[in-house]
């Protein structure tokens, strides 16, 4: 019985270690794919990249300088609708009749 328990426990380990290898291979395949897909085909130096980024930064900051600085308030005209009217959802109070003597 003790041998059976030991063998059983070892089989659990072997099966799950096999799973580790499978998952490692799967993970490696997918992470490598991501890395290779990110690689650019154009070969440019770091100085050129820096120059492009600076040019883009200047261009974008220029765009921001030309803001009109005018604040506008959009007026909405909404036609009356009884569907959201609160008065229709309230129970009217009873009207007391004046006693007629």
């Amino acid at each position: 019985m003790s041998m059976m328990a030991l063998v059983g426990f070892l089989i659990v380990f072997v099966v799950l270690i096999l799973m580790i290898f499978v998952m490692k291979v799967l993970g490696y395949t997918f992470t490598r794919k991501v890395k290779t897909s990110r690689k650019s085909s154009v070969d440019i130096s770091e100085e050129e990249v820096a120059a492009i980024l600076t040019a883009l930064k200047l261009y974008k900051s220029d765009i921001h300088d030309k803001e009109t600085e005018l604040l506008t308030i959009k007026r909405m005209s909404r036609a009356y609708s009884p569907w959201n009217s609160k008065i229709h959802g309230l129970t009217p109070l009873p009207e007391y009749r004046r006693r007629q003597w």
Partner: peptide
Amino acid sequence: IANPKSFLLGAAAQ
């Protein structure tokens, strides 16, 4: 999936 070594701990707990 992110950390397949966890399978070892799952096995040990058996």
